[in-house]
């Protein structure tokens, strides 16, 4: 079984807990993917364009930016490797949702593990906006089953049950 885990720098513990039932599997292969999001770079390019400058920074600045991105990606994957010894590390750059889906197909993943959104970015409580755009895209487009790794939450339950109404009132 080939399980691809999506790391975002803050979700290793959640992924680790979710992987517990699979760890006993005999033919388990774990892949850890981290995508350097190039969205922020697009934002910077837009601002440069607005100020009538070339879209790319000076070469020295580009080198520094790339060095920072690679260092962080390697850090995050290294942390993952310490938890999942023997895992394959997959470092990508691009739009995270697309890279995850494409990598799942290329890597021939049987299962994808992803958190609904980075807990830093918004509340992780269940609700209409609890699934971020990356997880939403992956759920919609993944080439294999996807396990959405939510944090356990019992505070909001039970949800309000709508009373059933007679047919003629509908």
């Amino acid at each position: 079984m080939r399980v691809l885990c999506c790391l975002d720098g803050d979700n290793l513990q959640q992924i680790q807990s979710a992987m517990t039932p699979f760890v006993q599997a005999n033919d388990l292969t774990v892949g850890l993917i981290y995508v350097v999001d190039n969205g922020p770079r697009d934002e910077m390019a837009r601002k440069r364009d607005q100020l009538l400058r070339p879209l790319r920074h000076a070469p020295a600045r580009e080198t520094r930016i790339e060095a920072a991105e690679i260092a962080v990606a390697q850090d995050i994957l290294f942390e993952g490797k310490q938890v999942f010894a023997g895992a394959e590390l997959l470092q990508k750059t691009g739009r995270p949702e697309r890279e995850i889906v494409n990598t799942a197909a290329e890597w021939d993943a049987d299962l994808l593990l992803i958190c609904p959104r980075n807990p830093r970015h918004a509340s992780s409580a269940p609700g209409p906006k609890s699934v971020g755009h990356v997880a939403r895209f992956v759920l919609d487009h993944a080439p294999c089953p996807v396990l959405l790794v939510r944090q356990k939450n019992r505070e909001m339950f039970p949800l309000k049950r709508a009373p059933s109404r007679p047919l003629h009132e509908l």
Partner: peptide, 28 residues
């Protein structure tokens, strides 16, 4: 600020593993 500070802050918060967009928007 927009052209020089922004990429520097981006590099900084990337290394610090902080959310990037708030800082990026703060600069722009």
């Amino acid at each position: 600020t927009a052209l020089i500070l922004t990429p520097i802050v981006y590099t900084l918060v990337t290394r610090l593993r902080l959310p990037i967009l708030p800082f990026l928007f703060a600069c722009t």
